[in-house]
Nucleic acid binder design. Structure first.
Lengths: 209, 209
DNA sequence: ACCTGAACACCGTTCAAGT
DNA sequence: ACCTGAACACCGTTCAAGT
């Protein structure tokens, strides 16, 4: 577990860190693991320290309190999700329906496999320290939903109207299905099937044409 | 605080309870208050006992552990919500659009004013003890959404298709907006405005007619 | 700079004992 | 039947002290 790294203040000098090459990163990885296994409520700093082989007071050097760790975890999750959604594009020449279904499935797939992490992302209170980075990542994520909408509107394929409002309609549906999956109302399989149905209903409407 | 009540085993005998007429009910009321003020994470059994003027071990006579209290609270919340939705009907002769908007606003209104309680209702794990009552109340609630759908389908006002699937589309949208409001993404006012927009989009569809 | 060990004030849960 | 008081094993946070 001992790592050799260059000192931050003397590039030519080799120095041994006390216990870890990067305790902060190690803690974040272990915390995400614990989060996935046992949920937020059961995530304890002391147990995390034990699992990392470090004293219970050590994490406080990197995270001023438990909330700071959760915030950092939320940031990791949000940035990862934004990246995934940015990379989730339907094949060239795909129809509007296909493009939205692809996006929706990517969202739901992430939500199903990272339920606890996603809950953290959407949690009520974050320290102001990370809130700037969180909103930046949040904006990236929201844009992956809003941009396809403005594009489709420009092509006359979608109704006119505030694209943010339309994005909210889509985002709320996806978030709702994700929540129903996270709490067991919907099985993961049922959720995947549902998301296609919901996108269809949203695109074509519930009132007969 | 001393209450006089009939003993459960001798109707003709007056008896004084030790401290409370009904500690269980008192605890539930105080717990909901604490939940609303400070959130689930800050709800402590010991503080609850202090606020109720009882020893910290007393609640365990009525709730075997903290989860049992949260479950009981969830049941209260779900039954109240089911009652509210059952009572939320648009005036006679209201259009389909008006009927669904009325229902959606009632859901959102409850969600905004009982955010923490609703979170408990939709929480991941409940003890099997209450799960029967919870599913009964849950079914009542779901029916307030599904019944208007089957009614409208019978009248030819709504597309054919599994009413549960259509109900899920509506329910997921509402739940999503409620979640965005609970976590501060949407202000309560914006949420009320959004819900009307979302219902409109869902009814008429995002693809131009 | 980074971590340890002890200390403090809180938890939830259990259990003999009181009324 | 209902509640108390003490005890136990856990927390998160802080802080002097070690390397």
């Amino acid at each position: 577990m001992l790592a050799v790294s260059t000192s931050p203040y003397a590039g030519h000098m080799l120095t041994r860190r006390y216990h870890h090459g990067d305790l902060r990163a190690t803690l974040l990885v272990a915390a995400e693991e614990m989060l996935r296994e046992k949920g937020v409520a059961a995530l304890s700093l002391r147990e995390l320290a034990r699992a990392t082989g470090v004293s219970h007071a050590a994490p406080s050097r990197h995270f001023k309190d438990k909330q700071a760790l959760l915030d950092a975890l939320a940031l990791v999750g949000l940035e990862r999700m934004a990246g995934i959604l940015e990379g989730a594009s339907a094949p060239d020449g795909a129809s509007l329906h296909e493009r939205f279904t692809t996006l929706a499935r990517a969202y739901l797939d992430f939500a199903v496999h990272n339920a606890e992490l996603l809950e953290l992302v959407f949690a009520r209170k974050h320290d102001p320290d990370v809130s700037d980075q969180l909103s930046a990542a949040g904006e990236r994520m929201v844009l992956t939903i809003v941009r396809p909408i403005t594009d489709a509107q420009a092509a006359g394929e979608l109704v006119e109207g505030d694209p943010w409002s339309i994005g909210l309609a889509l985002g709320a549906s996806l978030h709702g299905i994700a929540a129903f999956t996270a709490n067991g109302t919907l099985s993961p399989e049922a959720a995947i099937a549902s998301v296609d149905e919901v996108v269809k209903h949203l695109l074509y409407g519930l009132i007969p044409r």
